[in-house]
Write a protein that binds this DNA or RNA. Structure first.
Length: 188
DNA sequence: ACCCCGATCGTA
DNA sequence: ACGATCGGGGTT
């Protein structure tokens, strides 16, 4: 390799100031790993930025709490597609929930984003998937977006692993035996 | 066409 | 502890 080609492959000064967005290979990992490693990651959506502080894993046909437990439907179809896509659905007729699809294409799984520490105005702590989507303006209109390709909807890796606790998932009636909720312990 | 329920939230 | 509010999914 010539010194010129080596140098041209390095990030520019301005690029090195910001981390590179998380790509396909990250989201293709097993869902529990992605759930843990998303704690401390930065969600960017338009003008909004926030540190992810709480996640839950929903994993495949054998997870009774997973929307895809009974197969593919119009609503959950994106869960069967490529890792890194957004899965956003309406819940209780009035709130939206943001998920990121994980694992190999065809294996339905996703990480629900439940908590966000906003670093842009109003710099509030958003605890709860519905509040988070309401504040950011995320709706079903933003379903099935490819977060590894979108210009203003993506994730930046956590600078370091965040200490966290592991608990059962919230708001479900089946699958409560699984410790698939991950909540970062303050300070973030 | 009908019915029940839900990965929530705010108030009581 | 409970009501708001409506789309999704299964059943008739």
């Amino acid at each position: 390799m010539t010194s010129h080609s080596f140098l041209s492959s390095l990030p520019s000064a301005s690029e090195s100031l910001a981390s590179e967005k998380l790509g396909r290979d990250f989201f293709r990992q097993d869902t529990l790993t992605v759930s843990r490693e998303l704690l401390g990651a930065t969600l960017v959506f338009g003008p909004h930025r926030g540190i992810i502080t709480e996640t839950e894993a929903y994993i495949g046909r054998d997870d009774p709490a997973c929307h895809a437990a009974r197969g593919r439907t119009k609503r959950n179809a994106v869960m069967f597609e490529q890792a890194g896509l957004s899965y956003i659905y309406l819940i209780y007729g009035m709130y939206h929930c943001l998920n990121i699809v994980t694992e190999e294409e065809g294996f339905p799984a996703a990480v629900l984003i439940r908590g966000l520490h906003l670093t842009t105005p109003p710099q509030s702590h958003l605890d709860g998937p519905g509040k988070l989507c309401r504040e950011l303006g995320l709706t079903r209109e933003h379903n099935a977006r490819d977060l590894t390709e979108e210009k203003d909807f993506y994730l930046l890796p956590a600078p370091s692993p965040l200490p966290h606790v592991t608990t059962p998932r919230i708001g479900i009636s089946q699958g409560t035996d699984k410790l698939w909720r991950f909540a970062a312990t303050p300070p973030y």
